Amino acid sequence: MCASPSNPPAAAPRTTLEFLDAPAHPVIGPDHPELAGNRYGFEGGSVIYESGVFHLFTAEMADDPFWAKMRLAHWSSPDGANWQRVGTLYETPGTMIPGDTRFSLWSPMPIFNAAEDRWNLFYIAYRPGFGAGEGLHMDGRVWRAISQQPGRSGIGGPYRDDGIVLQPDADSQPWEGQQGTDSFYPWPVGGKWRAFYGSHNHVPHTPWLVGLAEAPALAGPWRRCPGVNPSPIEPHFIENPIVVSTAAGFIAIYDNCLSDAGTPYLPDGRHVGYSVSTDSVHWPQGRSVAVQPEGPANWSDDVRTPLCLVSTGDDHCTMIYTAKLRDRNFWGVGLARLRLRTS
């Protein structure tokens, strides 16, 4: 299982992400011709760069009721800037029925499983909360779905649900809360798999935190790690971390904010968070990197979820992310070029 917190690795060279430039507008905005009726935009998921094509898997906040009428969608792009909607993978009816464990779907994360020679899609399903003692999203469960097309070319699916790999149960740790699991992102390391999973309690309010889980195979069984959870990356707010393996180490990119202990969430219109680990178990406190410049080109009043960190040669990389527009109740998809620097 996960290493003990008393055995951290040796110190590594300092690795930082630096902002280079970004377009002055979203690459998928509210006027995109292929929104297919998506009223409020995008949040969460990930972007995979496969065989020269960017593949965006994301939650579309399609219509009212807000955060209930949802679609998990697949988009593609040859360059990260020009996008075409491929199709809908899952869709919810927008009803809020007590006990419905799939009323709202989020955070689609495709991972290639070499053992099956198929893409696996992990995503989160919630039941609706009711009453003063609950929040909107309750008891989040991590579903695993399998592409029905073999090989790496089967990334677009269709996907078939295979079962739940992590959910609130007797093994839930004390820091986890009513939201259950709010995101899940696996990565391979040393012949096994690790994943970040997140959670939060609505009433009484507690921070949004993440912890580590581990499994001998991508299909599981997944077990929460003892001793290292919750992760110290952020003390008050961290959501939807994605982990990228680089020559400089493992880099977790994630949604952060300007919050402190007294405020649950303060929007940040320019930055996302990141942390660098040498072993993917011990994670130092995170830092922030700008994905939008100051001034007129800053089109967002709340940057949300980073979706990828794709190397583009030398020390340059592309990050794609979601963010709320300043002048509209719409969360668009943005792009930034960054530099990965090690000293």
Rank of each mutant, 00 (worst) to 15 (best):
L136H: 00
G157R: 04
F103L: 02
F122L: 09
Y126E: 10
I155T: 03
R102F: 07
S153L: 08
I146R: 08
A145P: 07
Q148C: 12
M96Q: 13
T101E: 12
L121A: 05
S153M: 08
L121Y: 02
M96L: 15
S107I: 04
W143E: 09
G129V: 05
D139R: 03
R152L: 02
I146N: 08
A114K: 11
Y159N: 03
A115K: 11
I111C: 13
G157H: 08
S107H: 14
I146S: 08
I97R: 15
M109C: 14
E134G: 01
A132F: 04
D162Y: 09
R144F: 07
A114Q: 12
G157F: 07
S104N: 14
D139S: 14
D117E: 14
T95I: 04
S104L: 10
M96K: 09
R141A: 04
V142K: 05
N120W: 09
D162V: 13
H137D: 07
Q148K: 12
A145T: 06
D162S: 14
G99T: 04
W143K: 01
R118I: 09
G129Y: 05
G151T: 06
S147R: 01
P110F: 11
I146G: 01
Q148S: 15
L121R: 03
I155K: 01
P158G: 14
Y159E: 02
F130V: 01
W106D: 07
S153C: 09
R118D: 04
Y159F: 15
P158M: 15
I146A: 04
Y126I: 08
E116H: 11
M138T: 00
H137G: 05
M109Q: 15
W106R: 02
Q149N: 12
R102I: 12
R118M: 00
D162P: 05
G140T: 02
I124C: 02
Q149H: 10
N113P: 03
G129D: 01
G156F: 00
G156L: 14
G157S: 10
R127N: 09
V142C: 07
A115D: 15
D162F: 12
M109H: 13
A145R: 01
R141L: 06
P110Q: 14
L121F: 10
I146Y: 03
I155A: 00
N113A: 12
L105F: 09
G151Y: 06
T101F: 03
R144V: 10
E134M: 03
A132N: 03
A114N: 10
E116Q: 13
A115Y: 01
R141D: 05
V142L: 06
E134V: 03
Q148R: 15
G129I: 09
D100E: 13
L105Y: 07
N120S: 13
R141W: 00
P128E: 02
T95H: 10
I146E: 10
R102A: 14
D117K: 11
Y159V: 11
E116W: 01
P108E: 14
G157D: 00
G129C: 07
